[in-house]
Simulated assay, not measured.
Amino acid sequence: MHAAALDAPLPSYRPWIGAGLVLLAYSLAGNWLVLPGYRRFLEGGGSAGHGASDLALIWGATRTILWMLSFHLGALFLAYGALAAQGPAVRRFRRLFVAGGALWLALWAIPHLPGPYTALFAGVGTVILLLTVAAFLGAASHARRDAGVLAPRGEPWLIAAMFFFALATWDVCGLGSVGRILRPADELRAASQDLVVTQATKLLVELALAWTLLAVAILRRSRAA
């Protein structure tokens, strides 16, 4: 029965990949197509301005909401497409992933969450630190057990990607502590503005390096398969 499930036709994944790519393209294009109008809306005190019809307001709000969700939905569609390409063997995981992803997007869409967040940053940061150590130790143990086999499959590139993801995680925590983003009314917040910009720039570079190394690891693994 398990073999029959594995031999079943693969679900179509290309439409999900295509839709994800379109949404990611819109998330980028929205910086020029949507963001200027949204800024004018905010500068006008949250009103569409004189002479604007209700239809124009609805159309602008729809484009803005879609833009704000476009990257997250695009990533969800791409992930689902990648899982669909793996066939029936991951059907249960695929369903759980969609449910979990949709739940998180619903929570993410909440504009304001109760604070303060200092304890949350400290608590989750500590958990992430422990998970980071566990991930590197697990990778080292796996590499020792299968030495000589993992290198062609991209595992060294994966460990390098993990390194830069770890640095990016630390820099996010730094924005909350040293960067004072959790205390916008603090007098030190204005003094740390240059630090926030510098830290955010480093974070962006680290994420770019991490995703690049992860992509290389996945490509090497697919070629070695």
Rank of each mutant, 00 (worst) to 15 (best):
H2W: 11
A5G: 12
A8G: 09
P15G: 11
A19R: 01
V22C: 10
A25C: 13
L28K: 13
W32I: 11
P36Y: 08
G37Y: 07
G46P: 09
G49N: 14
G49D: 12
G51H: 03
A56Q: 13
W59Q: 09
R63K: 09
I65E: 09
F77T: 01
F77Q: 00
A79Q: 08
Y80E: 05
Y80F: 09
G81H: 01
A82Y: 11
A84E: 12
Q86P: 02
V98G: 01
L107G: 07
W108C: 06
L120W: 07
V127G: 10
V127C: 03
I128M: 13
L130Y: 12
V133M: 06
L137C: 02
G138R: 11
S141D: 07
A143H: 04
A143W: 14
A143M: 14
D146F: 06
G148M: 13
L150V: 08
G154L: 06
A161G: 05
A161N: 03
A168Q: 13
A168M: 14
C173D: 03
G174N: 09
L175P: 00
R180Q: 05
R180F: 03
P184N: 12
D186M: 04
Q193H: 14
Q193I: 09
D194Q: 10
V196G: 05
T198Q: 15
L203A: 06
A210S: 07
W211M: 11
W211D: 00
A215F: 10
L219N: 04
A224D: 06
